[in-house]
Nucleic acid binder design. Structure first.
Lengths: 217, 217
DNA sequence: TTCATTTTTTATCATTTGTAAAATTTTCCC
DNA sequence: GGGAAAATTTTACAAATGATAAAAAATGAA
């Protein structure tokens, strides 16, 4: 079943839609810390143990603000379970520019890189289970352990590749194409996150997104 | 002399414009390899010497294509002198998504991170003097030298912060605001690069950019 | 369930941006 | 300098998106 160029393949849309609305089946996913760390970049067992010594597990409810734009953040988080959004405030409204879910890393880039106040707030969109790591400890490990330093390098490089790809996608795809791309690449996102946030993430108004979704083919 | 919120401060625009057109004064800038490496992140002398052993100097003329999208790139470059653009091809046209100048690093992120073909072509917009470094050598140094590994990590982190900022800027600033931002932050760019490329970089058509530039205040 | 609240869709009109083509200006080469 | 080519601006019109308001649908709590 392929759906490459704009041709949708859902055999019976009405049925599918009803089913989704009725049950909103959440596939229960969860990633433990070993899976998360290894997915970023394989680490030797000893280095992984070293790293894990600095990591603690924390839980927060839906609606909690994990990171605030107006302070320098001293922790980074790995998402074991749940979904979050990063948003920035402007004069008129707030703009969602990132979603994180199981396996993703929550980090204020500006705090982390430049130790300055960032622009991002992180809001939990579901009850979340998180792994917490003090950046201070991580920095120390970077200086002491070449394995962890390269793991950190890989993390930044991969995030960079992803971010660059999004930037370019935004530059030469229409809002419609970007929505379909998201739908194909992250179908669960549309079910787990309200459309207002999705619209903001795509850089359009909620009304525009509704128009796109309403189009028949 | 400040020009923060949309209020232009050029005292006599007609005069300034004529002057610029007549002389198009290029401030001759150039960065040597030590300056470039240190600007990314300070390195100990010994590590810097080690890294420099793998770096050679090369020159190419304006118009040269330094990197091609259809091949896995095996080099990275530091720009000593000159200006370049990265562009991706689409069905209809090509889209400029990055400019690099003195001190910047030219790298195909996808080749570098995933060892896959990238989407970017790099074209030299002026005659360029470059420092060349084989990624293969760099990878080896990352595994052997923690100093260099952390230098590479810092590089990726900084690029990530910059790219993320651009992505967000695109999301909540209008084309007009982004043009003015660019004009303020990189005034030389507008003089060294043709406006068609700038328009593409801003994510608008050349016609739109002309309209923005034509506005009086 | 029922009701209040939140989210999503629809409709209308204004604004922005794009497309195409022509006019103008600049650049470059002889 | 002169003339061809390239780059930029302008114009007119079309298409896409935004703003606003209101209707419809979904959600959540009692």
């Amino acid at each position: 079943m392929k759906s490459d160029n704009g041709s949708p393949v859902i055999p019976n849309e009405a049925y599918t839609k009803t089913r989704v609305t009725a049950f909103k089946q959440h596939i229960v996913r969860s990633m433990n810390i070993d899976q998360i760390l290894n997915a970023i970049h394989p680490l030797s067992d000893t280095s992984k143990q070293t790293l894990k010594k600095s990591i603690a597990e924390v839980n927060y409810p839906k609606g909690h603000i994990l990171l605030r734009a107006d302070k320098i953040e001293t922790n980074i988080y790995f998402i074991k379970k749940g979904i979050v959004r990063a948003f920035a405030n402007t004069d008129h409204n707030e703009i969602t520019f990132w979603f994180g879910k199981e396996g993703d890393t929550v980090i204020s880039m500006k705090s982390y890189v430049a130790r300055q106040k960032g622009y991002e707030n992180i809001e939990l969109l579901e009850d979340c289970e998180l792994y917490e790591l003090k950046t201070e400890n991580l920095q120390k490990l970077f200086d002491e352990n070449i394995d962890i330093a390269n793991w950190g390098r890989k993390f930044a490089e991969q995030e960079l590749a992803k971010t660059e790809e999004r930037l370019i996608s935004r530059q030469f795809r229409t809002a419609k194409e970007r929505y379909r791309e998201l739908l194909k690449g992250n179908p669960d996102l549309i079910q787990r996150v309200q459309l207002g946030h999705i619209a903001s993430y795509l850089g359009i108004t909620q009304v525009s997104l509704s128009r796109i979704r309403a189009e028949k083919n």
